[in-house]
Design a protein around this nucleic acid. Structure first.
Lengths: 149, 149
DNA sequence: CTAATACCTCAACCTTACTTGAGGTCAAGG
DNA sequence: CCTTGACCTCAAGTAAGGTTGAGGTATTAG
């Protein structure tokens, strides 16, 4: 019989997320299925959307923790609306914009380094790309190699 | 005394890479230091550049395996030239271009989904973003949620 | 020459994101 | 009613990319 609620196997088939992964996501607070009398998980249809969102967000490179941060802004009591989802998507969009910008900067710096043929000098644009080099230990580090001697 | 060769501690300070990480990178074949009479590692100055490259490549999101693929095109016997490094950088540039393009596509798809307010329908642009959904199991999956009913 | 560092190896542990297996229960069809 | 397949929990294993600690040796400053 097809009920309003879905078993873990059914939701696995609908989303492409493995049964074990869905259980794991429950321990991580990404879905909160109810239980039937026998203790088996019962998911709402809107959980399909939740899990699909998790899948996409992971593809975009977000960690479980980051996804949880976003997804917990969804209402627990009612089925999330389009508006609820749109808010989350907008936040992700901003994140993606930042990541694209960051990668573009790195690419252009790499270009500069190819241009100067050095990848190593004091003024290499990649030099300032990392806090770590200057942040720890005494004196400056020359990220892509030797000091000109 | 300052010799032509560097100890692991010296190279750690110069690159900002921890001693334990450098040893790990050796087991992974990213650096191949020689040993002195007492069995201690001795690095060439060009290894600073190698390790710095590893650092940058990791920041760009490349795995150790991918980095090894690139870095092993460097000559073992002689100190790598600017040209050697430039070849590698060009390959990385292409990778970065691809990743930027991919992210941009995803971002635009996400935009489309915000625009249509759905994040769920059959024709959602994100739907086709994943092989996995259609690749396994019978019938199509509707990635961002329920079928319109 | 000796003490203090720095270095060595090897094994075990950490995090993330899961999967796998053991041992047992639940639910649906015949 | 009984069998089969889906489900349950809990513990352990996996891969990546390291870190940490134990127990021991090298090197270097004084």
């Amino acid at each position: 019989m097809v009920s309003a609620l879905l078993s873990i196997g059914q939701i696995s088939k609908r989303t492409g997320v493995s049964v074990s992964a869905i259980r794991y996501y429950e321990t991580e607070g990404l879905v909160k299925p109810s239980r039937n009398a026998g203790g088996q998980r019962r998911f709402r249809r809107s959980d399909i959307r939740r899990l699909s969102f998790v899948l996409i967000a992971q593809q975009l490179g977000f960690s479980i923790g980051q996804i949880r941060q976003q997804i917990r802004t969804l209402p627990d009591e009612r089925t999330p609306t389009q508006r609820d989802w749109a808010k989350i998507s907008k936040r992700f969009r901003r994140e993606l914009d930042d990541r694209i910008a960051g990668l573009t900067i790195m690419r252009d710096r790499l270009d500069g380094c190819i241009g100067c043929g050095c990848l190593s000098l004091r003024n290499c644009a990649l030099y300032n790309a990392q806090d770590r080099a200057s942040a720890k230990g005494p004196g400056p580090r020359y990220l892509m190699g030797d000091l000109p001697s």
